[in-house]
């Protein structure tokens, strides 16, 4: 029998997806399934936090372009 998993399908630019992977790598608590280079499924309960972290990440990158990722 197939399995149905609840979640949120996120479709985005590959560069944005790479950042989501990086955020998830810290505690593996966002991504349900990595589908392809522009598509993934994330936990619905974590969507708001993910968006916030993405925005933080993007503003950090802009302020410190050559910083050797100390996070």
């Amino acid at each position: 029998m197939p399995k149905a998993v609840k979640g949120v399908l996120v479709q985005c630019d590959p560069s944005i997806k790479a950042i989501i992977l990086k955020i998830d790598a810290l505690d593996h608590d966002f991504i349900v399934e990595d589908l392809d280079d522009q598509t993934l499924v994330v936990k619905e309960s974590k969507l708001v936090e993910l968006k916030q972290r993405l925005e933080d990440e993007l503003s950090n990158t802009q302020q410190m372009p050559e910083e050797s990722g100390s996070e």
Binding site: P2, A4, V5, G7, V8, V10, Q11, C12, V32, E33
Partner: peptide, 10 residues
């Protein structure tokens, strides 16, 4: 970035 709530079948 597009986010759609639903279910993944696998």
């Amino acid at each position: 970035m597009k986010a759609t709530g639903g279910f993944l079948f696998k």
